[in-house]
Design a protein around this nucleic acid. Sequence first.
DNA 1: CGTAGTCTTGAGTATCCTCAACGAGGGTGG
DNA 2: CCACCCTCGTTGAGGATACTCAAGACTACG
Lengths: 210, 210
Amino acid sequence: VTRSFRSNEEIYPGGDSARDWVFVVSGAARTCHYLSDGRRRILDFLLPGNCFGFGGHDIRHFAVEAILEPTVVCTFPRALVERAGADHRAMRESIHAMALESLTRAQSRIITLGRVTAPEKLLAFLVELSQRSIREDRTLVSLPMSRYDIADYLAISVETVSRAFATLKRCGLVHLTDSHHVHLAALSGVKPSEDESRSSAHEFALSMND
Amino acid sequence: VTRSFRSNEEIYPGGDSARDWVFVVSGAARTCHYLSDGRRRILDFLLPGNCFGFGGHDIRHFAVEAILEPTVVCTFPRALVERAGADHRAMRESIHAMALESLTRAQSRIITLGRVTAPEKLLAFLVELSQRSIREDRTLVSLPMSRYDIADYLAISVETVSRAFATLKRCGLVHLTDSHHVHLAALSGVKPSEDESRSSAHEFALSMND
DNA sequence: CGTAGTCTTGAGTATCCTCAACGAGGGTGG
DNA sequence: CCACCCTCGTTGAGGATACTCAAGACTACG
């Protein structure tokens, strides 16, 4: 089943009815968890090619919401996917690969959240987006999500996100053509190896005390 | 291959030689990532029954170290595990279940790291340990790891961990018989449902401003 | 043109980190 | 047996960072 969604529309309600797989075709989406006091945590951003649906029993607690307009997704009943996985080897391996990718991203995010300062977190986030991007030029990153989404993703406040952007600009690490298009100067001349860029980004971030 | 390790001994070096699966039989272990400046992040604690080895290419960056003495683990070459998974349906499903469990734990951890105050994080961590515990009485939690391990797990400093324990004690949410055995008073009379305990713990934690 | 939403910036406060010191427990050697 | 060293855990003081509250630009849209 293929459907299209508008901005901020709910693709997938968190709750017991959560029994489908979601595969993002185009646009972008966010995976949210709402705490009892109304605060929101964003677990992951789903870009074209990403999917959501494993995670065992706990997926009930997460809602999926569209970011861009339009966002096109395919949904499959869980039972169908699992049956296909049992029958076809290629399907099974594909599912396994996507699950591993989700796990890898989650682990990478734990590292990011563990970083100390807000500019560090933001820079790590931008680098992550750059690596997930399909663009050829990895120094140009487009941000489909709002500052509020970034804030809930990095577990910091909106104002801090804005200030962190200002800090990175002041240090010459990034340039913003507009609010949603970033040029990562930090990556220019740096090998695309993940650890390289991270540590160098980190080195830069360390020297950001005004 | 079954081996036994002493406290703080390296089970598994991070690096290119990381080609095995690790299955914890008894004791406890931690999964570490070392940043270029020497700081350490703990991605996960491995208790008996947990395993480590999926995660695709990124597992190279993580080291596994023993916490308790002795810690007994089984290691298998990756190729062997993957072949067994391809041949035997039961094995494959078991592997898939463990991968999903790792993913679920990672997602849960992202929620925990997103919590605002240190006592909130610590309480969420204790609740998580209580739910992973095999004990019948879930209000009694044993902490095999040191305060430094907890600090690196929650991405806060050791001193803050200690102060957070003091705050939780002062609010009557936990009691410590010794440094490594906690009684979770917050869970007494609370349904073991995950969301219930979390939100109630959170409610309590909110009212902790001295 | 007004309204709503987003993004940014400022001021004041609270939290956490760093540095430092101290006490408790375990192992070792005199 | 006790002094010594080492690690771990705790507590205090000072400073840096991020949050809250508040207000002001910018954009989109009716």
